[in-house]
Nucleic acid binder design. Structure first.
Lengths: 205, 205
DNA sequence: GAAGTTTGTCCGAATTTTCGGATTTCCCTT
DNA sequence: AAGGGAAATCCGAAAATTCGGACAAACTTC
């Protein structure tokens, strides 16, 4: 599920330590040493969160943050700030970081924070999926000729009956309350012929 | 939207201070002095989060937490722990608290934490709404005879066409690509007839 | 209030759809 | 390999649906 943590941290020792902490908690660390290396993992469908150091040689945490926002503003970024560097932390949040942690950080706190981020990510992704599902579903059955619309509905109904009955035509027919022959007729009309399940037909596409 | 914060804090001074902090940040504090008072606000559709002190005379934060879970396990509870009381904090998280804050807490941190909680709550609620929408929608058009299912679809299609065309039958027919008469036939079959205007036909049934 | 539309209904012939029966080809079990 | 059963097709008569035409009642509009 969503438990990837993309780690961006130049200090190899700290990185290793974080990796270990996460693994113990059954998370899935993806360690990288800098923005350049991490960059290609940062996508709008990334199923996890990002944990980045702020102070780094080439690109700093804010660069990461900005880049992430261009890819997906809802991808949580947790930043590691220096000890009690409150102003920077505030700025990080303002710029859209999900949270921040002070550098010599308590493992418990780290895990909690990441867990929250992951949960957030999971919810965002689920939400998108639902939304997508919903509006494709109604877009499909909207306008057009009565015949067309009806045909769509019928196709859906038949397809579901068929698949529910695992391709067994006669079972499906029974379930739909029509004789087998009629179902064949309708399938033919809709060009839904289901010979797919029988003789090892490779689907053409 | 979701920006209510149910505050459970027995110390009046601290409570007032929190209220003020939240108001400045455009959140909507609901101050209470203890569990008993807060209890009735805690419902599964509460559009906000809970901020509770842990140490309180009658019921402590964990009591609140447990109660909240019975009402809605996805209602974020942020607990206020004493200074550097790490074990208690850990326990809080383990028991399902959303987050915790150490008592003399930085206003910025407080706000950030609550904001995250509120965001989480918002997502959970949206998610539920979507899920509900989605499965009621398909539950309606699920089982039954082919004839029944098809009839439902047709009824929906016709009803929409009619209402889109503001009840004008001939316009609707044109839009659906069928002759007026056919539309009448189908409407009759589905008993969608709007013969209300003509001579008082008494339906037999 | 008269002419022009639109609505709600009815007909009936042409067309489509349904569905039982029959047949052949497969798949699965024994 | 044989038998049982389902899949996939073909037929054709019975039933249902479509759709143009027709009509009276109800509405607009001028």
């Amino acid at each position: 599920m969503t438990r990837k943590v993309l780690i961006i941290e130049d200090d190899a020792a700290l990185r290793a330590s974080i990796v270990q902490t996460l693994e113990l908690e059954d998370l899935e660390p993806i360690p990288t040493s800098g923005f350049t290396q991490a960059r290609r993992s940062i996508r709008s469908n990334f199923k996890g969160v990002i944990l980045s150091d702020i102070k780094m040689p080439d690109y700093d945490g804010f660069d990461v943050l900005r880049f992430v926002q261009t890819r997906d503003p809802d991808l949580p970024v947790v930043l590691l700030t220096g000890y009690s560097d409150v102003p920077t932390a505030m700025r990080a949040i303002k710029e859209g970081a999900y949270d921040y942690l002070e550098k010599p950080c308590d493992p418990g706190r780290l895990i909690d924070t990441l867990r929250r981020g992951l949960e957030h990510r999971k919810l965002v992704l689920e939400n998108r999926a639902y939304r997508h599902e919903l509006d494709t579903r109604q877009a499909s059955a909207q306008s057009g000729t009565l015949a067309e619309q009806l045909e769509n509905s019928e196709r859906q109904i038949l397809e579901r009956a068929l698949s529910d009955e695992n391709g067994k035509v006669s079972k499906a027919a029974k379930r739909l309350g029509i004789p087998r022959n009629t179902l064949y007729d309708r399938m033919t009309r809709l060009r839904l012929v289901a010979k797919s399940f029988r003789s090892g037909d490779a689907d053409d596409e």
